[in-house]
Simulated scan of single mutants.
Amino acid sequence: WPDVPVTQQRLQIGVSDPSVQALRQRLMVSGDLPREAGISSAFDSYVDGALKRFQARHGLPADGVSGEYTTKALNVSAQIRLAQLQTNLVRIQSMSGDLGQRHLMVNIPAAAIEAVENERVVLRNTAVVGRASRPTHVINSKIYEVILNPYWTAPRSIVEKDIVPLMQKDPTYLERNNIRLIDGKGQEVSPTSVDWFAPKAPNLMFRQDPGKINAMSSTKINFHNPNNEYMHDTPQQGLFNKLMRFESSGCVRVQNVRDLTSWLLRDTPGWSRQEMERVIATRVNTPIKLAQEVPVYFVYITAWSAKDGVVQFRDDIYEKDGNAELALNTTTGIEQPAGPVDDDLLPRN
């Protein structure tokens, strides 16, 4: 297919520009625009609908405007896309077998979660996953616990790099963010008794109380894994509206997490949606063991289609496909996380 020229003028409905001819050809070749729409320089309603279809199946906002990211996706070569399909076919074939009557599928490049029941997707959730330098791990596991009103314990790296400097500037920071200091005996320590200008950060646990400003907000979902990764709610709901949702340190933030936890707890007696909401309102830390563990699969699939035959593509965010061209919007270089994680969860108040 032809490259779509990068122009100063954004291509959208109502525009007339010679580069629209190449856009029409490109969308025709990939089956997004019917050939009977013809070749012209006019960006009409046919092109608008075709471009929105293209955007939707590439994980882009379907706004019908050929902006920077859309143009980059249009100009990935057919050879690269074919290689992407071949690579992902092998990945998908390796997933064959009994995945479980009820299971969760977390597709990292799509930053999306699907709850599957009897081979049908019953719930989809938008997610925020690990950035390229702190990637979310591919793993097959089982979800064993939901914690309502979780505590958040700050990793040592955050304590040293972020919290101590903040306390030097503002001694009320911990109190305002409901973060308590706990010593090795489980006793609470007053922040006023700590020398925040000492050469080393205090050897204390920094634990944030449950509540709305808690870094994990209402919910934490635990699954067996060696990387101390988990899924969780977030007070920063605006992150789910971003195009590039690759911002965490390995853990996965879940939009509309209560819909997902309701589904997970469906077979756990005593945990209706109403009861779950009641407990969240109390802000009391409440761990819940699932009556039956739910399989969860963290996968890295950048190309696929469903039964409708529509081919979907996503950016190769971690450069696992072997095609640097597909890492359209990321920086290069992946370093494995050195330890437990979500250091981006530092409260910002």
Rank of each mutant, 00 (worst) to 15 (best):
R134H: 06
L181Y: 03
D162K: 07
V252G: 06
P171Y: 11
S249Y: 05
R134G: 00
K142N: 10
R245C: 05
K200A: 14
L243T: 14
N227P: 04
H232S: 07
G211E: 02
F246G: 14
F206P: 01
V254E: 07
Y230S: 06
Y144K: 08
Y151T: 02
N225L: 12
A132W: 08
I182W: 15
T126I: 03
R156N: 08
E247D: 08
Q236T: 12
R253T: 10
V189A: 06
V129D: 08
Y173C: 03
H137M: 02
K220S: 05
V129N: 07
L174C: 02
G250C: 07
P226A: 14
K242I: 09
W152T: 06
L166Y: 14
N178H: 15
V254F: 00
S217E: 08
P150R: 04
V138I: 13
S193T: 15
L239P: 04
Y173H: 08
G130H: 04
R176P: 03
P135F: 01
P226V: 13
P135H: 03
R207T: 02
Y230H: 06
E145R: 14
S141G: 13
T219G: 12
N214G: 06
V252K: 09
Q208W: 09
T219I: 14
L260Q: 03
P155G: 01
Q255M: 10
A215Y: 02
V129L: 05
D162E: 13
N256V: 06
T172Y: 11
M244H: 08
G238T: 13
S249M: 02
M216D: 12
Q208N: 09
R258Y: 00
P135R: 05
G238F: 10
T234L: 01
N203S: 15
N214K: 08
H224P: 00
I143F: 00
K212W: 13
V128T: 08
D259S: 12
V128N: 10
H224T: 13
G130K: 07
N228W: 01
R245N: 10
K161Y: 06
A154M: 03
S262G: 05
G184V: 15
L166V: 01
T126H: 03
K161S: 13
S141P: 01
I179F: 01
S249E: 08
R258V: 05
M231G: 04
P226E: 10
P235Q: 05
H137D: 10
L243A: 11
V159S: 04
D195Y: 11
I143W: 04
T153R: 10
K200Y: 12
N228I: 00
I143L: 00
S218C: 13
W196S: 04
R176F: 03
S217V: 01
Y144N: 10
L204G: 13
V252R: 07
K220Q: 03
P191D: 04
P191F: 08
D162P: 04
N125M: 00
L243K: 12
N125C: 00
S248H: 01
Q208P: 07
T261P: 05
Q187D: 11
Y173G: 03
S218M: 09
N203G: 14
K212R: 14
L260Y: 02
K161L: 05
N125Y: 00
V164T: 06
N177Y: 09
A154W: 02
L181D: 06
E188L: 13
E229L: 14
I143D: 07
K220C: 01
K220H: 02
T219K: 15
R207D: 03
T192R: 15
P150T: 02
W152K: 03
I182H: 13
N228G: 14
N203T: 11
W152Y: 04
V129Y: 03
